[in-house]
Design a protein around this nucleic acid. Structure first.
Lengths: 330, 330
DNA sequence: TTGTAGGCGTTATCAT
DNA sequence: ATGATAACGCCTACAA
């Protein structure tokens, strides 16, 4: 049923080695046999068995994409970027998520590498620990981390500090002095960096950091935003809030503010982080910091393929810039 | 560098066949050698080469997921469902999208099948043609289509007609008689079915279908909603609108209505379709028809695995029900 | 230019 | 209970 090199070889009166060379466009094949072989291959609707090929060449021509949780819109967006530039490539994308798994990111990676399943890995995670990242460096399979800077590992990430500064600068420029900040205690480095940008911006303007204006939430949901709004309201004099924790939290804040008769942006200016689709839906629409997610995916896949094909050596980092999107909420 | 069965065999003083049997938990192995082999395997940090294994067993242990466009939130959600129940399975998910590709869904499928790359395929598409679907039936690799009913092919889909009826019934029950309907001319079968539900509901209540109340948009975006609102307003007497085209269109309608001083739901009741995250963000929040997307993914992956492993034969269909979500917009 | 032969790492069938 | 051996389908020296 399934047609192999041998089948073609027989019908063409040549050997399967010759057919292989034709299929792979190797030089030194007479035009006549090349034509004959190609014709028969087409007639029989031949496709090379990629598994057999992989065994022979020690290449799987596939790239693993490891994500902690496919439910994250950030992750999905980066994945879309990967897939969209991956189109023209000869690599297949295999998708792995680690949430609810016994294996950690690094264990999974090690297994994939050792099983010879993939030629390279893109890890999309901001929460992976330095300890875990070490394993990636040590394996011989090329890998790259997206969403945080890798120390000894290739990486693509965003300048969160600058993003946080842009947002805070803008609020200060608008005259705000009591600016609250809502961070996350589960999203790792990036929110910390954005918070850092907030601090630096205040500092640059000579505004003292007031710890009572700094709040933390668990996750990037409207519910968290609603809750944190109450805490913010208990603190006197806040006129603006910057939300490194993410757009959904910012949206929750806006919703609850409106419900309580606090006018956004007049009584409270709100700036989010991420630029989700919902940012345009909420009224007033959300001023926020956009991360170039598709672009991150694009860079990541290109970098990993370059690495796999030996076009690049050494550690490479790509830092992308956020874009401040001004809408109505601030 | 890479450790193989042979390496273990040598150190254990047995043959690689024996080691293979141990690794695969075959019976008829003495406890002593089993222990010895396992110990050495662990010491050497051995992982079986899945490619070699695949060649020998003629199984790749991976499932292809083909989607037209990963940018669709529907597709992503189904994919999340697939991945989340895929966790406990021994199958790897390979992701393919066809947008901007030279290959159609069916050509891609045929190639994947012939290349022996995958053991089964899940196609997530509502727009695939019957013609294309035929190829899926003909290949020997199991496949299943999600989001539309397959004729001779396994499928998981939603009862869109009932969804459309629920929505329209509700509006009628609320006293509406001039109910507009906004469909899509690019989203294929599902929106047509929802429209069908709309028609049946009207019919059941003895309300004549008025063609001038039926509109079509190009895509599921706020922009389309804004535009179609204007057209709706030109038609006198409309008090409600059902939007099979999707939630973003419905949200666009609400936005534009508010901008023009039309009060939702008092002057215009709006019902969407999908239940996107943004449905809860818009104010008034969107009454809509929720599709069980995660569940669809869950069923799909289970069905395909059953098929691959020979637990199921014959054509199976799974029809899921939508859920009507009442919020503020109607 | 083409054929021969061996190998990639596993599994599976038969002996022993 | 274990070993020999062939086979999976393809690639690649090397020989002719």
């Amino acid at each position: 049923m399934t047609v192999t090199l041998k089948d073609i070889a027989q019908r063409a009166g040549v050997t399967s080695a010759t057919v292989s060379m034709v299929i792979n466009n190797k030089p030194n094949i007479s035009e006549s046999t090349r034509k004959k072989v190609l014709k028969i291959a087409k007639e029989l609707n031949y496709y090379p068995n990629v598994i057999a090929r992989g065994l022979a060449t020690k290449k799987s021509n596939s790239i693993g994409v490891i994500v902690p949780n496919l439910a994250s819109s950030f992750v999905v967006r980066v994945l879309q970027g990967i897939k969209s530039t991956n189109r023209d490539m000869d690599y297949t994308v295999q998708l792995f998520d680690t949430i609810g798994q016994k294996e950690s990111e690094s264990q999974l990676f090690q297994r994939l590498a050792r099983e010879r399943r993939i030629d390279g890995v893109v890890l999309i995670s901001s929460t992976v620990t330095d300890e875990d990242l070490k394993v990636f460096v040590e394996e011989s399979v090329p890998s790259i981390v997206v969403a945080r800077k890798g120390d000894k590992l290739d990486s693509v990430y965003v300048n969160n500090v600058a993003g946080g500064m842009d947002a805070t600068d803008y609020l200060i420029k608008k005259g705000h002095r009591s600016i609250a900040c809502v961070t996350s205690n589960t999203q790792g480095l990036p929110t910390m960096e954005r918070f850092d940008g907030y601090k630096r911006s205040l500092n640059n303007s000579g505004i003292p950091l007031r710890p009572e204006l700094v709040f933390a939430v668990e996750d990037d949901t409207m519910k968290s935003g609603v809750e944190v709004f109450k805490r913010i309201q208990e603190t006197q004099g806040v006129t603006a809030v910057f939300v490194p924790a993410g757009d959904m939290v910012a949206i929750g804040i806006i919703k609850e503010a409106k419900r309580r008769g606090v006018i956004v942006p007049d009584n409270l200016a709100v700036v989010g982080f991420d630029d989700l689709p919902a940012a345009e839906v909420i009224e007033p629409s959300l001023t926020t910091v956009r991360q170039p997610k598709l672009e991150m995916g694009d860079y990541a896949i290109n970098m990993i393929v370059d690495k796999i094909e030996g076009r690049e050596v050494g550690i490479k980092h790509k830092e992308l810039q956020c874009k401040f999107i001004i809408r109505e909420s601030a």
